[in-house]
Structures are given as structure tokens and as C-alpha cells.
């Protein structure tokens, strides 16, 4: 298929900022490049503007300043040719469609052929075998999130945006997914941006972790993750990985305490 052969896009944010109506500044003039084919994790304290940044990259939120380029194209253009997928924090499965039906809908919306067999493969991959015909209401929160991830992968997008996709997934499944997903990303050739709360997840899944400050989001640290692939859960106990996790943690807590100082003074 043609999207497989084109290299995954490079995403360039230039002076990207967002101020909501009412004056809340969520993101402040970010200059940021996500390299082609890389997986980048965005971590930061709650409400720091990570999701807003992700939505701006997807073009679902209009930036107040600056611009986003996805392989040289505007987000809208990319969306129109089904070049990106988003897995939302809320799985957003349509309640009247089965798991299979929800995934098929994504293909339909993306104007891609609906291939039942590959949908079933994806369902199996996210560990939902036997639940293809189940409706979202019959699934647990974690299962719904997995269905949403399968849906996001189904269209084989060049850019995959994941907004805390494992929030409700249980620890065991999460580990399994953390092993399996990167393989798919690599195989499909996607640039992936992952928003997460979990520092270890960020380190183990990505090629690079960006730590953001509390609102408005600014870049605190940009840490390249040089770990061999495929990665396993055991690596977390590995010295290099542990160091990296520690590094991200301290950057995170520094940025937090820094932000809390002026708050306390008020």
C-alpha cells in the first residue's frame, strides 16, 4: 500500500501557542520538531497543556499563534488524506457499533477499504479476541481503550497521536501493549507522539521524552532515549533505563516545584 512506502512525516511546530477565550494560556510559543519515524513521549504535570498541544498538532484545535507542519503539509490537509490517527483519552467508541464496527467506521471515514481480516488481526493484537462483536457497553474501561488503540492503528496513519491511551488499562496488559505496539509502529512506519502520565512508560516506549512545564506548557527538558529495541519490561531494571527514568522524574519535579513557588507566594 502506498502509505507504507512513503516515509513517515516529520512534524515541525513553529512558535506554537494557544490562549483560550478568557485568557488562560495553555501552550506558550513552542518550537519543536518530531523526527520522522520516531516515537516521542510528552510528559508533564496534569493540566499543563499536553493534550492541547496534541490537539493542535492534529489540527483539532486552532493555534492562537505559530503553525504546525506535518511533512510539509498543514494538519487539515493531512487529516483529509487520512494521514493521522488520534487515540483519545476518552476511548470515544460509538455505543451502537461493535468493536469491529467501530474499527470499520474509522476505515470508512478514512475512505480506505474495509478489510475484515486485518481488523480481526488488530483486535487480536490488542488482546480483544472474542470481543469483536461486543458493544462498548459490554467492555471494561481498559478494553475500550484497547479497542480505541486498535481503531487508531487500523488506518495505518503516518502520524499517530496517543493521548494517555493506557490510563484505564490494567498493569499486565499495559506491559504487553508496551511490547507489541512499538513493533507495529515500526512496521507501519509511523511518527508517534504519546502523551502520558507514566514516566516509565514514556521511557520504555519512546525514542525521546519531552518534559513540559506546568501551564503554560514550555519545554523543560528534552531527553533522548537510547535503548535497544525491542524493549522489554526487564529493561526498566536495567541501569541505563533506570537512570533515564530518574532523569525524567527529577526534571518533572523540578518544573513542578518551580511553578508552585509563585503560586505559594500569591
Amino acid at each position: 500500500m502506498p502509505p507504507d512506502r512513503t516515509p513517515p512525516p516529520e512534524i515541525v511546530c513553529t512558535g506554537l501557542g494557544k490562549t483560550f477565550q478568557g485568557g488562560t494560556e495553555a501552550v506558550q510559543a513552542l518550537d519543536l520538531t518530531f523526527e520522522s519515524g520516531q516515537t516521542t513521549a510528552l510528559v508533564g504535570p496534569s493540566g499543563c497543556g499536553k493534550s492541547t498541544l496534541l490537539r493542535m498538532i492534529a489540527g483539532l484545535e486552532e493555534p492562537s499563534s505559530g503553525s504546525v507542519s506535518i511533512g510539509g503539509a498543514a494538519p487539515l490537509e493531512t487529516r483529509k488524506r487520512a494521514g493521522l490517527s488520534v487515540a483519545f483519552q476518552d476511548p470515544s467508541l460509538l455505543p451502537w457499533r461493535s468493536v469491529h464496527g467501530n474499527i470499520a467506521l474509522a476505515l470508512k471515514l478514512a475512505r480506505k477499504p474495509v478489510d475484515s481480516h486485518s481488523i480481526d488481526q488488530l483486535i487480536q493484537l490488542v488482546g480483544l479476541d472474542g470481543f469483536a462483536d461486543a458493544r462498548p457497553a459490554e467492555l471494561s474501561g481498559g478494553m475500550r481503550q484497547r479497542a480505541a488503540i486498535a481503531r487508531a492503528l487500523a488506518t495505518r496513519p503516518g502520524l499517530l497521536l496517543l493521548d494517555e491511551p493506557f490510563g484505564a488499562v490494567d498493569e499486565l496488559t499495559r506491559q504487553q501493549l508496551a511490547q507489541d505496539l512499538p513493533r507495529i509502529w515500526e512496521a507501519q512506519g509511523t511518527t508517534t507522539i504519546l502523551v502520558t502520565h507514566s514516566v516509565s512508560e514514556a521511557v520504555l516506549l519512546s525514542d525521546r521524552v519531552i518534559v513540559l512545564s506546568p501551564r503554560p506548557a514550555r519545554i523543560v527538558t528534552d531527553i533522548p532515549i537510547v535503548l535497544p529495541r525491542p524493549r522489554t519490561q526487564e529493561m526498566a531494571r536495567d541501569r541505563t533505563a533506570a537512570d533515564l527514568i530518574e532523569q525524567v522524574f527529577s526534571a518533572l519535579s523540578d518544573s513542578k516545584s518551580e511553578a508552585e513557588k509563585p503560586l505559594a507566594a500569591q
Partner: peptide, 21 residues
């Protein structure tokens, strides 16, 4: 919920697809 409409938009589809789906 808004996220359902975001989903439709994230695949580059507009109001009409949102209405139908």
C-alpha cells in the same frame, strides 16, 4: 460528546459525516 466529533474530524471528515455517523 465532543470527542466523537473530534474522531470524525481527525479522519478529515466534516459536518456531513458527523451527521450520518
Amino acid at each position: 460528546p465532543d470527542s466523537w466529533f473530534d474522531l470524525v474530524r481527525s479522519y478529515g471528515r466534516g459536518r456531513f459525516s458527523a451527521l450520518v455517523h
